[in-house]
Design a protein around this nucleic acid. Structure first.
Length: 324
RNA sequence: CGCGGGGUGGAGCAGUCUGGCAGCUCAGCUGGCUCAUAACCAGCAGGUCGCGGGUUCAAAUCCCGCCCCCGCAA
């Protein structure tokens, strides 16, 4: 069905969703209305900040609606728009089932994994943490469950060993853009037979908390590295550092894995051939960029210039729990 | 009034509590040494100590006001 004849609503909030919306606008797909989460307080000043989707919608002069909840009024408002189809991408809240049946063609969802793998809120991060080499995007029809709907189309994406969250997200968003328009056209023309997911192979992802970024040095270097890749954008990986008796949080912005197994015990900082390395259960971790609490992001060399006592300290997972 | 750390040569920091010559590591420059190094030796240059006011014989340091950066919280 030609897109021009469809009443399309786009629902989304995050950066990932904004990439799709931007593409749809670029391709002149008529979006009747954009629904995004209300502006939330953010940052140190707690300023109410518009979502990436809202910013994109504004610059494309689209109609924007922001609902605090989905009660009768809100549903009626959506119904009044007479949508033929709603495209949902990373909206961030679970939609009430009543919305799903409002549009003639239902709600379709863009999900950043190859369902039924990685259902839930953090598919990209979970794929990276698992060290997966393949991920992808799924376009599906939404039903009552979370990411359980029938599949319209999927596209695979390769993940390279040094990919981190931002560029994997970018790849997957691009894959989504590659298929979204033709999928909608074919689906609304009745040319796609939705395929059921096999629930026996389904896996689930968790909402990520800031504290998930804490590094456990007593684990394999590969696991720490994968965590760093997954959380590169948010919440980042961090450890605690005894700065002359004061425990401080140290974010490690950029790391690599050393090639030679070191004798250092987990969390032990050492300098070898001028390179700072931190012991793990296996290979050493080499920090390259760090941010100390209260300070700016800097390269490890600069950090050592100011705090030479960092070498020989033992990093830990808790505040105030340092040996000696 | 949410909590906390900070602004000192180009980079990262100490010095501030207890006022008294501007200090450390790195980078830079000059020369030297070495088969060689993110190595070593000798020397040089580079600073309105965030901004404004106050106290004082004397302020990076004490007092008042302001600006900016960052970690937490949300």
């Amino acid at each position: 069905m030609p897109l021009e004849e469809l009443n399309i609503i786009f629902m989304g909030t995050s950066d990932f969703a904004a990439k799709t919306l931007a593409y749809l606008c670029e391709q002149a797909v008529p979006i009747k209305t954009v629904i995004t989460q209300p502006d939330r307080p953010a940052g140190r000043k707690q300023v109410r900040t518009p979502s990436p989707v809202k910013i994109c919608a504004q610059s494309n002069r689209l109609l924007i609606k922001q609902f605090e909840k989905f009660g009768k009024e809100e549903l009626a408002a959506i119904n009044a728009l007479n949508p033929d189809i709603i495209i949902v991408s990373a909206y961030g809240l679970i939609l009430p089932p009543k919305i799903l049946s409002l549009p003639k063609f239902g709600c379709i969802n863009i999900h950043a994994s190859l369902l039924p793998l990685y259902r839930g809120p953090s598919p990209i991060q979970t794929a990276l943490r698992s060290g997966d080499k393949i991920s992808g995007v799924t376009i599906m029809l939404m039903d009552k469950g979370i990411d359980t709907g029938t599949i319209l189309r999927q596209k695979k994406v390769e993940i390279h060993p040094d990919d981190t969250f931002p560029n994997v997200q970018e790849k997957i968003a691009r894959a989504a853009n590659d298929i979204i328009i033709t999928t909608i056209k074919k689906y609304t023309a009745g040319k796609i037979n939705p395929v059921q997911q096999d629930p026996s192979t389904a896996t689930y992802t968790q909402l990520i908390k800031k504290s998930d970024g804490l590094i456990d040095w007593d684990s394999k270097a590969e696991l720490i590295y994968n965590k760093y890749r997954a959380f590169a954008e948010w919440p980042q990986v961090y450890t605690y550092f005894d700065d002359k008796g004061r425990t401080k949080k140290l974010i490690i912005d950029e790391i690599a894995i050393g090639e030679i197994r070191s004798k250092s015990s987990p969390g032990q900082v050492a300098q070898k051939d001028g390179i700072i390395q931190i012991g793990t259960k296996t290979l050493p971790i080499i920090p390259k960029q760090v941010t100390l609490e209260g300070s700016k992001k800097m390269d490890i060399r600069s950090f050592i210039n100011g705090k030479p006592h960092f070498i020989k300290t033992i990093l830990t997972t808790k505040r105030g729990l340092f040996p000696n």
